[in-house]
Simulated assay, not measured.
Amino acid sequence: MIRVTGAATNVIVRVTGTGEVLQSGVLNQGEARMYDQPPMDVVATNGGAVDVFIYGKLQPRAAQGARGAWHVPQR
């Protein structure tokens, strides 16, 4: 799950390997998205503004204002 907790930020979610884009655009504060198509790559323009959960575990945030990137492996 991806949840925006700070300022609006651009988020891209892509299926690894196929390149299929599941999300590409701005998510506003309070918005959340959940995807179940691993493996995936998640990139946020402001990685400090999002909470990213992979298999229920909160992932480390990027610094405020810095690009954040996370990989969701196949189980």
Rank of each mutant, 00 (worst) to 15 (best):
55 Y>D: 15
62 A>N: 08
10 N>C: 03
52 V>F: 02
36 D>N: 11
59 Q>Y: 01
63 A>W: 10
26 V>W: 13
55 Y>L: 13
7 A>G: 15
37 Q>G: 01
29 Q>V: 00
8 A>F: 06
4 V>Q: 03
53 F>Q: 15
62 A>K: 05
29 Q>C: 00
42 V>L: 11
19 G>T: 09
34 M>Y: 04
19 G>A: 09
33 R>F: 02
53 F>E: 15
61 R>H: 14
45 T>C: 07
66 A>K: 02
14 R>T: 05
19 G>K: 05
3 R>Q: 13
27 L>Q: 05
56 G>D: 07
46 N>L: 06
46 N>E: 14
27 L>E: 07
16 T>K: 10
53 F>T: 09
60 P>S: 04
12 I>Q: 15
66 A>L: 02
35 Y>G: 00
42 V>S: 12
60 P>D: 05
16 T>R: 14
4 V>E: 03
6 G>P: 12
14 R>F: 10
40 M>V: 08
58 L>A: 15
65 G>S: 13
64 Q>F: 10
30 G>N: 09
46 N>Q: 13
20 E>Y: 01
68 G>N: 03
10 N>A: 04
30 G>D: 12
36 D>W: 13
36 D>V: 05
19 G>C: 08
64 Q>E: 15
59 Q>N: 00
61 R>M: 11
8 A>I: 06
36 D>C: 10
63 A>G: 11
65 G>R: 13
42 V>E: 05
8 A>P: 02
50 V>C: 07
27 L>C: 06
14 R>A: 05
47 G>L: 15
56 G>A: 03
4 V>F: 05
6 G>A: 08
48 G>W: 07
25 G>C: 00
32 A>K: 07
11 V>C: 08
50 V>T: 10
66 A>P: 01
16 T>W: 13
22 L>Q: 04
47 G>K: 06
18 T>S: 00
55 Y>G: 07
55 Y>R: 12
32 A>F: 08
54 I>A: 02
38 P>F: 09
51 D>S: 07
43 V>S: 09
16 T>S: 12
3 R>S: 05
29 Q>R: 02
46 N>W: 05
34 M>R: 08
44 A>Y: 09
57 K>T: 01
44 A>Q: 09
32 A>M: 13
26 V>Q: 14
48 G>V: 05
41 D>F: 11
45 T>R: 15
29 Q>I: 00
33 R>T: 01
67 R>Y: 11
57 K>I: 01
53 F>G: 09
56 G>F: 07
10 N>P: 02
51 D>W: 12
61 R>E: 14
55 Y>T: 06
67 R>M: 13
39 P>W: 03
40 M>Y: 08
9 T>Y: 15
17 G>E: 11
43 V>F: 15
10 N>R: 04
23 Q>N: 11
19 G>W: 08
32 A>L: 13
5 T>N: 04
10 N>Y: 11
38 P>M: 13
35 Y>M: 00
65 G>Y: 14
66 A>D: 12
31 E>N: 01
28 N>A: 08
62 A>T: 12
48 G>N: 04
36 D>Y: 11
58 L>G: 03
50 V>D: 05
29 Q>F: 00
42 V>H: 05
27 L>I: 10
56 G>L: 03
26 V>M: 15
52 V>L: 03
63 A>Y: 12
